[in-house]
Simulated scan of single mutants.
Amino acid sequence: MDLQTFLARRGGAARRSDLLRAGFLRPTLEAAVDAGRLHRPQRGVYAMRDADDGVLAAFRYNGRLTCVSAARFYSLWALHPPQEVHLSCGNGVPKSGVIDHAPCMHAPDPALPVAGLADVLLHAVRCLPELEALALVQSATGRGQISADFLRSKLVGNRNGRARAVLDLLIPRADSVLEILAHTHFVRAGLKVRMHVHLPGVGEVDCLVEECLVVELDGSTHFEPRQVKKDQRRNNAGMLGGHLTLRYYYDDVVHRPAAMVEQVQAVLRLRALGRFAPE
């Protein structure tokens, strides 16, 4: 493996000790710096010009990326990009623009300055707003990367009550971040909701609310012409089966959840009044 490929797989930067251990010679590193292919952002670290900012920050502060700053390295759902760098440095010294988490207790990433998945999620449920933490944990547990029971075993005591409450919102399966968020909003509004229900003639729907109202949560692929036609035909089939359908998009679920819930409740009230039946 050449030097550029080695660094690219590590976020574009690495410590000199790791490079030497991998078999690269010091003259090779210096030649790359002289030629402008690499630079030394700090002592003992070599980096490509397009190195990951988070990785560089981890080296700068001698820490490991964690919480939402580590989400992309584990392909976790993150609702919002972090405004500050979340690191586990372990020394408690304040750092401008850095949220310093507790020391890591589990094996870290072997190649990157990134905390292990368990520490990333434990830091997240103690740090982030509830729904942001839930998105990260749902994506990891839903894919079988880690179990909710394992995380819960690490969150004992009264001080971790808020963190355990995030785990209580998890569902067995969520195919997108919209599903876990919508499920949470509907349940908290007192609505009965079942996820991934198969309806005759329609197929699997995202949510079935109060056994009569289908709620579909559409991502970007649903704007493709072929998918639009398929969705409209599914809506028609659902109507023939006695099920009304509402569709919501990312902005609705993430940024306007109260309006989404109010519409669902309004349709249910109209249905109860017989407004969708002939007079």
Rank of each mutant, 00 (worst) to 15 (best):
F223A: 04
D206C: 04
M239E: 09
H243F: 15
N235D: 15
R226K: 12
K229R: 15
D218E: 15
C212K: 09
G219I: 02
Q227M: 12
L217E: 05
D206W: 08
C207K: 00
L217S: 01
L217Q: 03
E224V: 05
N236Y: 06
H222R: 03
L208C: 09
T221L: 12
M239Q: 09
G238T: 08
K229P: 04
R247Q: 06
M239D: 03
L246E: 01
E211P: 01
G219R: 05
K229I: 14
D218A: 05
L240P: 02
G241A: 12
E216S: 07
F223V: 10
E216N: 08
H243K: 03
L244A: 07
C212R: 15
E224R: 12
R234K: 15
D206L: 06
Y248Q: 02
R226Q: 13
K230E: 14
K230Y: 13
V228G: 02
N236C: 04
G241L: 11
E216M: 12
D206G: 05
D218K: 10
H243M: 01
S220E: 14
G242T: 06
E224H: 14
G242Q: 09
L244W: 01
V215W: 00
L213M: 07
L246Y: 00
R247T: 09
D218N: 15
L208M: 11
P225T: 05
E224Q: 14
R234H: 06
V214H: 00
Q232K: 12
V215T: 07
D218H: 14
Q227P: 10
E216D: 08
E211T: 11
L208Q: 08
L217F: 10
R226W: 09
E211C: 02
E211H: 14
R247P: 10
G238I: 02
Q227L: 08
D206H: 03
K230W: 12
S220R: 14
K229A: 15
V205Y: 06
V215K: 00
V205F: 11
Q232T: 05
L244D: 02
R233K: 13
R234E: 07
V214T: 01
P225H: 07
T245H: 00
E210F: 04
